[in-house]
Design a protein around this nucleic acid. Structure first.
Lengths: 230, 230
DNA sequence: ACAGGCTTTTAACCTTAATTAACATTCCTT
DNA sequence: AAGGAATGTTAATTAAGGTTAAAAGCCTGT
């Protein structure tokens, strides 16, 4: 992966700067926000690969930021930074959708390990060379091919990218925005209609298999439902 | 997911038994090993979904077990249990291939959260959840489908979410506020009327089955009453 | 350079879901 | 029993998305 991006929410400027610079020295691209109010907006704008949130912030604490982020993205790893160490804080952190927890004062070494650990665990575009089995279908993302029994259909670039995003998020909801950004790179009005066209194509491809369905969630996105039951 | 399996390596029999039983009470299937020498063999035999390793063991410490496990499997999540708290131990743990770290003494609550967190993170895709049987009806939340005898009705997002909340709280009272928050995300006046509309739709769906009823509790909420008698 | 075949975008028109509104009903309060 | 708030019901409206086809863009080979 090339330069993972990190959203770092921290209100202490001194600590913040040190951490930001240390992370950048390790080739992370860091966006730092010092006011909790701006954090969620920055998140949706910059779509970082991982978030590091201080829990003690003016205006809005780390937990509520995490919850807000989870509204739009239930995958991005979140690490909480806290001064406290009580079990109930850890519990609260996990309940808010956090994935790890580090206590102040922490060593950069440890933070970096935890970041890399989470990035490795959540790497979604891990091995797109492998075939992806979707009920009766086989999708070869690297070859842009979709097989069904004896039929091999060559996919175009957009078709393949869209199917890849959906496959990687199968059985969960993926927002239109996310799809548009990964497949088209932006989410303007016209691309938006474009997506509709391609969704329609994919539905057509999968029509022969009732176990596969692309469910529309109006105003939100899609859910690629694949029923693996025999 | 049905009953994740856990390999638990712990040499203190007293602690071990408590933890094993607590985990089993939460529907994990736990294999406990007390001697480090046997751990790796047990791992290859039982292919657990996750490992919990104490680092202080006779014969073979947790770190070397982790390294051995990583030889054959680089995906399975590993949690270390340790009495120490030094950064260098954490570093050592991650270097050995661990994914999380919990310090003795720990609360079961926290361990369970960390286990679930890692299982969720490593679960490649969302897994289809079970169908919900409601008297004569079958509700498939991830397919947005409601079956009654031969009829399959496709549900919209709001219909499905509302029905899900009600089913999960069947035969108990759910407040309007809770429903509004889970289905619509907020509970303003207009959404409130919206809920009435959808409740009306659901009642319509279930009209053919007298065992199912949505009871209004004025000023409070609803009770989704399902009589399971044959 | 341009013809032919492809993919992608744009456009037009259609369908459906979600919201809002309007009016009816229930039920609690006094 | 009257009045009012909460909810039920149905219909109208609005916005999102589905479908299909035509237009535009892009390679590739000659």
């Amino acid at each position: 992966m090339s330069n993972p991006t990190i959203l770092y929410v921290e209100d202490e400027p001194f600590l913040g700067r040190i951490v930001k610079e240390s992370l950048e020295a390790r080739n992370f691209t860091v966006t730092m926000v010092s006011d909790g109010k701006d954090a969620v907006k920055k998140f949706t704008d910059s779509r970082p690969d991982l978030c590091v949130l201080d829990v003690m912030l003016p205006n809005k604490d780390g937990y509520s930021i995490a919850q807000a982020i989870r509204q739009s993205n239930d995958k991005v790893p979140i690490i909480f930074v806290t001064a406290k160490t009580l079990t109930e804080d850890v519990v609260k952190g996990f309940e808010a959708g956090g994935n790890d927890y580090i206590r102040k004062p922490f060593s950069m070494e440890e933070l970096i390990l935890r970041i890399n650990n989470l990035l490795r665990l959540t790497q979604r575009y891990g091995s797109p060379s492998e075939k992806i089995v979707l009920s009766e279908f086989e999708f070869h993302p690297d070859r842009y091919e979709l097989r069904h029994q004896e039929n091999v259909r060559k996919l175009s670039h957009r078709e393949a990218m869209l199917l890849l995003v959906l496959s990687q998020n199968r059985n969960t909801t993926v927002s239109r925005k996310e799809v548009l950004l990964t497949v088209w790179g932006d989410d303007t009005f016209f691309n938006s209609r474009n997506l509709d066209v391609y969704i329609s194509k994919l539905r057509d491809f999968f029509k022969p298999d009732p176990a596969i369905e692309i469910i529309t969630i109006k105003g939100v996105g899609y859910r690629f439902s694949v029923d693996e039951q025999a």
